[in-house]
């Protein structure tokens, strides 16, 4: 098996039910080594539930998981030593300094050399926090320290749940660069969940779209780019009449009405003139007609049938 194709995490029919709420509904996942997975979904889609199952904080109701090819309670527990994770808000010792937090983590992980603490703090830009207790840290600084805690053991698989929450624009860029750097230089596999889809688009190499506890789609960056279909963005004085015209005159239903009234037509991409003429003949006032493509955000909402 090629190293780059090695599956480091696999879920089969993974299900999690909380009383009457089905948080994860028989999901199947296969994460390959060396990729940066963007975990996409609305609040309550099941992203954090899936992460909790992987990290051992929660137990599946049904289905199975395998980490680095090993499954079963004991083996999964053992393999978790090879991963790093930050679930939701960073779990930090608030009365301790950044160095002391990492020292506690170093002791727990059994890392012999203390040098890793300074190096990791430098990596996340927290070298100069001195004796400042974590309770006095800003949200962004806590987020960085949470990432540092997850990175300390040089993990093979790093799970970051909303890692850019609370970061300022420069912090977001730094974390993005850090993920890329760690992925490319150390070959770390990432599973990153984020609500900021355009940000995720700049980091991820693969995407997992989750909706209401189900995996809607698992696709690579290339597949996404292919699927983020180009379309004709039509802006007229009457969106409803525009859709009727498209259906009756151009014989297509392959369009979508956006909240701002723009109609996205996915057909007739090579024949904009014909579209313009049809709209004009229907007495519509066309204020905009241009060729455009979906962003990751657009694609996601298109898939879940929202907005």
């Amino acid at each position: 098996m090629n190293g780059m194709e090695e599956v480091i995490f696999e879920a089969r029919n993974l299900t999690k039910k909380y009383r009457n709420n089905l948080a994860l509904d028989h999901i199947n996942l296969s994460l390959r080594r060396g990729e940066v997975y963007g975990f996409i979904g609305e609040n309550g889609a099941g992203k954090t539930t899936a992460i909790r199952l992987i990290t051992g904080l929660s137990f599946p109701t049904e289905g199975s998981m395998a980490l680095f090819g090993k499954s079963g309670t004991k083996e999964l527990q053992r393999q978790r030593a090879r991963i790093g994770c930050m679930v939701e808000t960073p779990a930090l010792y608030k009365n301790m300094t950044a160095v002391q937090n990492l020292e506690a983590q170093r002791i727990q992980r059994g890392i012999p050399n203390r040098d890793c603490i300074g190096k990791t703090l430098k990596l996340v830009g927290l070298s100069d926090t001195g004796k400042k207790a974590v309770r006095h840290f800003s949200l962004g600084m806590r987020q960085r320290l949470g990432i540092a805690m997850a990175l300390l053991n040089d993990p093979e698989f790093l799970i970051l749940d909303e890692p850019i929450n609370g970061l300022d624009p420069s912090g977001i860029v730094e974390i993005r660069d850090l993920i890329r750097q760690l992925n490319q230089e150390r070959g770390i596999t990432f599973l990153v969940s984020s609500h900021i889809l355009n940000e995720l688009y700049q980091t991820a190499t693969c995407y997992i779209l989750l909706h209401k506890g189900r995996v809607l789609e698992e696709l690579t960056q290339r597949e996404l780019d292919e699927k983020c279909r180009r379309h004709i963005a039509i802006k007229t004085n009457d969106a409803a009449q525009t859709t009727i015209t498209l259906e009756n005159n151009l014989l297509t239903t392959n369009f979508q009405v956006m909240p701002d009234g723009t109609v996205r037509l996915y057909d007739h991409l090579d024949n904009m003139e014909e579209v313009a003429q049809a709209l004009s003949r229907a007495g519509l006032l066309v204020t905009g007609l241009s060729l455009a493509g979906d962003s990751l955000e657009d694609y996601f909402f298109h898939k879940i049938g929202g907005r």
Partner: peptide, 13 residues
Amino acid sequence: DRTLYHGLMTGRS
């Protein structure tokens, strides 16, 4: 603060 869970994530029972 969920700091106790660090142990679980380092492969301990």
